[in-house]
Design a protein around this nucleic acid. Structure first.
Ligand SMILES: [Mn+2]
Ligand SMILES: [Mn+2]
Ligand SMILES: [Zn+2]
Ligand SMILES: [Zn+2]
Lengths: 145, 145
DNA sequence: TAATAAATGCAAATCATTCCTATTACTAAA
DNA sequence: TTTAGTAATAGGAATGATTTGCATTTATTA
């Protein structure tokens, strides 16, 4: 999705293409990793007058419309990122919170299969894996316990 | 882990085996799916005087000590479950919210594979599929575009 | 340009979770 | 068994992210 097309993308949802919305999408497109609401707010505010609640409202809107991802651990701030062409799964380090995107979906054929078996029209799915990144697993070593 | 052994399990952590802690583990062992803190609180309170903060503190303790799982997407309440050998995936109807448990995990070998490929120690994962249950897909028919 | 519904900004409200502190009760030692 | 010492609890207040209500502004469409 190209920056010049945010206007169109928003209208396609049947929503108004406000400068705030376009700025939010632009800010997201500049992030190289999922960002918190206040990080996004700070970036947007540099280019466009806005309020924190507007950022919250629109991130939630864009998420519910499927344009962006929302992820994070319970009790932690949510993180948002632009949805790239393919849907994305992640590996998350439970120590340092590093996130690694998994390329390729291991569930495509399974989604069809389980849909047939359980009489469900499966439209989407969500999957994340948790563990330790290389660095954190080295730091911990076999120390703990 | 057997219910009668909670006492020992807690002591093994170097912690005091209080009735509250034992009751929390018992409550978790009775849940068939990950439960929120207040669900656990309500159950525990039926058998043992306790406070919400005690439940919070101990769930966090048990989680950090590796006896239980903690999961949940941001914005949702955290959910805790006893660590068991198997875990569970679900199909969720986005219309009526019906939930169907999927038996069997389609990601077991993939978890190992991706861990090796990405240098991650993969410990756990979460996966849910979304769509329409049979009833709701019939009601909607092919209406939605 | 005018009509109108949608969106914004700001403040106040919510809600899960954490923190504080006086009191209680496990535990290990005597 | 009693006791001292310390960890844990109860309950209430505090916190911090997210949400909501409402008056005002703005994008859209004709
Ligand atoms: Mn910038
Ligand atoms: Mn019960
Ligand atoms: Zn890490
Ligand atoms: Zn349904």
């Amino acid at each position: 999705m190209d920056a010049r097309n945010w206007d169109q993308a928003i209208r396609k949802l049947g929503k108004k293409a406000t400068p705030q919305r376009k700025a939010i999408l632009t800010a997201l497109s500049q992030q190289d990793k999922p960002a918190t609401v206040d990080e996004i707010f700070i970036e947007v505010r540099e280019h466009q007058k806005t309020s924190l609640s507007t950022v919250y409202r629109n991130l939630e809107l864009l998420f519910s419309q499927g344009l962006i991802n929302k992820q994070g651990f319970p009790g932690e701030k949510a993180r948002y990122s632009l949805k790239r062409d393919t849907h994305e799964h992640t590996l998350v380090c439970i120590d340092c919170r590093k996130i690694v995107a998994i390329t390729g979906c291991p569930l495509e054929s399974y989604a069809v299969e389980i849909g047939l078996r359980e009489n469900f029209v499966v439209l989407d799915h969500r999957m994340e894996m948790y563990g330790y990144c290389q660095k954190c697993s080295q730091i911990r070593g076999r120390v703990s316990d």
